[in-house]
Every structure is written in structure tokens, then in C-alpha cells.
Amino acid sequence: MGTVVDTMSASEATHCQLLCTQHPLCHFFMFSTQKYTDSKDRFKCELKQTSSGEPLAKAQIPNVTSGYSLLPCPDLYPNVAFIQSNYRLLFTPDALECQRVCTHDPDCSFFTWTSPQHKDQASRLMCSLMFSWKVPRIRRVELVDRATSGFNDKKDFRISNVITDCAVTLLSDTDFRQGSTLLSKEPAVSPGHCQTLCSAHPLCTHYTYDRPYCYILQRTNSASTNSAGLISGVPSRFCQQDSSWVTELYPGLAFPGSNIKMVNVDDVEGCRKACSETPPCRFFTVNIKNSNISVPLRGFCFLKAVLTVPAPEKIQEVENMVSGFSLRGQ
């Protein structure tokens, strides 16, 4: 028992748990299986919370599966270091205070704290805050004439909950890469997509879009160069971005990998519909039937998904270091 913060559809209990894990307010969930008595509630995933993070009461209900979010992870991990670029460094008296700082910083996903016994005196008591992408990213993008790709337009790619619309300022034929530190080079389908990625990175101050890549930059000086065809801009974190790029189709682009399902469809809209009706699907690529591609692959729609659960790039065993995760949502 608890307060329902959202109700969604899920294919199975593990899918419901993943939805709970990725919801900022969910502590635990209740999933009604396909054998649940009331047919209209089958496959229903209720995301819940309480002030304590624990259910107020527990009861046995046939054909219902319940469980907890996989996050937050309240444990601290001694002698463990999360190896990833940090975006903020500060000093705290202990690991718990470092975790509290991480929890109150909306960009922080996890941290590593260095104890007073660490051999490097300069890094003792250092709290390194690290971020993990909260928006789905395309792992790869390729220019393929026969393919068309797109996104699940029912998914939320917003960075901000503020309802005020952003002013759209795009600088055509402008390259900000000179005089900037490259934070990340990400596949992107449009300048709008690139702006979304820049806005999701806590250190991004500017971006340059050179199809099909988004250069996420931290400006070190005001230098820019004229470059035909390139588009640059700045992040928008405290207003509602134009998300029309999510509803567009992108002929000539393919998103290799990240496949969760392959279906045969008659056209591109059929593929988009299949993605929208498959909860984990974030984006898709379809091979057009009238293309020169080999007959067995014509008309096949590849549904794709990526996880946004916080995960360090690498974890190492290191003495006198403590790591952990943000407790945001607990």
C-alpha cells in the first residue's frame, strides 16, 4: 500500500520494475499479470511511494507481483571507485555527506569519496560527483539510403518540467569547436536533438551539429569559425524545448544495434506504430520495401531500446575510497 505516483502498462513484472527504477518518485510497484481477475487491469503497472520508502501494508493478491525499485542504492561501497569523468569536485568530511551532496544535486547520479587514509594527500576528503545520461542516446548512426529511422513520439525526451517555451536560437554556418573542450561526441539526427543532448549534460555550454554528430562542448573562449552547413547553439535547461524533432522521420539514417524486436511492416508508419505500442521501444529503423536491399530484409522494422539507469563506465577496487549512488527519490 502507498501513494500511486503513476500508472503504466508493462509486458511483465521485470519491465514494471524497470519503469519504477527510472521513475524519479517510485519506491515500489504492483504489477497485474495476464491472469489477473479483472481483464481491464491486466498488464497494469502501478508505481508507488511512501514517506518511508516502505509499503504501509502488505497483502497476498492472486496474480499480482510486487517489488522495489532497483534505485536508489542506499549502500556505500568501501574500497570501490567509480571510474568516470566527474563534473564537480568538492571536499566533504565523510562519505555520507558526499552522498547527501550528490542527492541534492539534480545532475548527480553517483559519486566517489576519498578517505583521509588515502595515499594521495591532495585528494583526501575529495567528493567527486558524476552524472549518467538521463535521456536515451543513439549508440550509432549510419547514412544508409535504403533506411528510414525515427523515435517513439509517445516517449518523453524533455529536460525541464518548466512549461514556458524556449526561444529557439540556431546559428547557421557556425562552428564552436575551436576554442572549446569536447565533452562528448554523440550521434544525433537534427540540431534540436543535439540541443537536447547538450542540455542534458551538466557541463555543456555550447554545441555544434555536423550531421550526423553532435559535438557537446564547454567553451574556453569566444572563438568561433564560419563553416558551411554546420549549426551551433546553446543549451536550454529552464524552459520547454521544441521537441518536434521527436515526431519527424529521418530518411537515409539507420540506427544500428540496440535491437529488442524485429517485425515485418508495410511502411514506415507501420514501424512507428509498432514502436509506440512496444513500451521499451525508444527508436526504430525500417528498411523500405522498394529499395535495392536484399528481399529477406525488405520491410523489416527493427525496434530499439536503451536503458538510462545510472551505471558507471568502470568500477575498480581501490583502497581508501568509497562510492555510492544518489538517494534522490527516497
Rank of each mutant, 00 (worst) to 15 (best):
P187Y: 14
T3M: 15
V135D: 06
T285G: 00
R139G: 15
G67P: 02
W245V: 09
L129I: 00
P280V: 00
C108A: 07
N320D: 12
H104F: 13
C214Y: 07
R146M: 11
V101F: 15
V295T: 14
T37L: 07
C20V: 06
P78K: 03
D267I: 03
A147V: 10
N320Q: 07
G67K: 00
W113E: 02
E97R: 05
V4Q: 14
F43K: 11
S9C: 04
Q218A: 13
Y87A: 04
R124Q: 12
A13T: 02
T220G: 09
Q22Y: 04
L76S: 07
S222A: 15
K304Y: 04
L90S: 08
C271H: 02
C108R: 02
R219G: 12
D156G: 10
S236E: 13
Y215W: 15
P296S: 04
K155H: 06
C73H: 12
R124L: 11
P187M: 05
F157T: 02
Y87D: 11
A95T: 04
N290S: 11
P310Y: 01
L253Y: 10
A13Y: 02
E186A: 15
T196M: 14
Q99L: 04
R42L: 02
C16H: 05
A95K: 06
A95L: 06
H23Y: 09
